[in-house]
Design a protein around this nucleic acid. Sequence first.
RNA 1: GGGCCUGUAGCUUAGCCAGGUAGAGCGACGGACUUUUAAUCCGUUGGCCGGGGGUUCAAAUCCCCUCAGGCCCGCCA
Length: 535
Amino acid sequence: MHWAERTAANLAHRGSSHLVAAGITPSGEFHIGHIREILTCDMIVRGCRQAGLDTELLFIVDSMDPLRKVYSFLSPDYEKYIGRPLYQIPPPDENGIPILNSKKSYAEHFLNPFLDALKELGVELRLSWNHKEYKEGKFENASRIFLNNREEVARILTEVSGRPLEEDWWPYSPIGHDGSFDDITITGWEDPYVTWIDSNGKEGKSHIGKDEGKLPWRLDWPAKWDFHGVTCEPFGKDHAASGGSYATGRLLVEILGSKAPHPVPYEWIQLKGMGPMSSSANITVGPLEALEIVPPEILRYLIARNKPNRHIEFDTGGGLLEMADQYERLLATWNPDEPPGEDSTDRVKTAWDVDRAKISMSQTNPNSSINNFDSDAYVSFRHLSMVAQIRSDDQDVWKSLESSGLLEGQPNPTLIDRLNRMRNWINSEHFPDEYRIEISTELTAEAKTSFNEGDRKYLSTLQESLSSCEWKSAIINDHICNLARENGMDLRNAFIILYNIHLGRPHGPRLASVLAEIPRETVIHALENAINSLD
RNA sequence: GGGCCUGUAGCUUAGCCAGGUAGAGCGACGGACUUUUAAUCCGUUGGCCGGGGGUUCAAAUCCCCUCAGGCCCGCCA
């Protein structure tokens, strides 16, 4: 059984209606790790719905959380916003300088591109802005209960997390006169107000049913479980450690009279060769950049095929090509009408069923049938990577695909989108060098050893005919093949020689297509070089 | 110190939570095809399932111990 379906099966024991939640603090750019969190939720939701459970995905934006520090991508101007809620501070421009007159908040600034990405990935969700929930009093009940049970709450936190709390600790963080959570000393609790004094000695009070303060993280979380009715929540493995926030949360939520959601801890995902993803650390690669180069279904496949507790090393180089191959192969070979026979072992049956789920979970459209895939008309990722390099103009790409029978008429939006992403990939540093097509202008030493005096006639007759023929792929190919035959050469060997001469390696994409794309003089010149090298 | 996760073929891994003969992809190797060229097709190779012990008719799967790697216990998913 697929991991998402297994989770759904576990949830079915709990009830028939479910709320799967994801909570993310928009403190910086969203990244592939956040994608994993949301897609993990999304797949569980799909698994639940498939199992007949009424299920929804809730995306909680922790917009009430304060800015912790001036991150590396922010200018020192942000110093004054530290401690203030993320929904109340201005977004940074490309230099990290606050845009004071912006209509968007810091939180929205970072969230919006992420939401766009989720849409492309086919994720359906309901948004919950945490600051609005505070404003609307959703946290009032939980705040009151925690405040009234201050000792009990403190005891749980201390015992479970192993960290002693300050003597004057209160289960609430008020916002001071300056709009910041920092440097406030709580003086008392008089329902519905928490009274306090700021560092200047000025007193104040916060209504717990308004956005005049918030619960500390470890209390905020169970409070959300309680009033939203969260039944399942995936979270990073850091929260899963003993003494971590889930351990305290599951006890604290009982004080509120609720049950903790079914936990789904997940491992980190990182781009191969780069450190772990973090929205607050110094990252050198635009975190959502991965989305600009990978087709949505391949990204979904990456998450679908790896169980949450599996660490993912996302290879955006050659590994991407392999993963795309695997995905396409799975689509092309998995046949819903040919389940394993009765006499097959359980493993074989399970594998077949897990493959079914992987394909299904990878689709951006949750309702799309998984057997409507027409492999004959599908342009493979690998093929596209080649054509896109040879043809710089999109129209020429379509022509090329049409002539090879992979496209009829105009390309659909999906294919156009795939080409765009492919071009982004090719133009990025992620694209693997071994697949980069580069025309050799000089004869490499290795290329030189691939042919000898016996090939001179072939090369010179080829040079001669290519210098006058029509410069079209099919024609060029004719000359290459016909002349090789006339000279009694093995066709394969002729190609190896020519690849070495033109690309500096023994093989590559359809040679004639490549040659047709570059100037005739370049080709002739390369052949001349080769012939001269024999002298 | 406490805890979580991972360890299966050269590589990436499925199967583990309902014990029942170790599955796949890539790679490698061999073959087929020959206006064919990072292609396609067919085949072969390759695993004492990290190690040890236990439970069982039967263990990759359950239990205990152990080794190795990653991570958490300061609000970084």
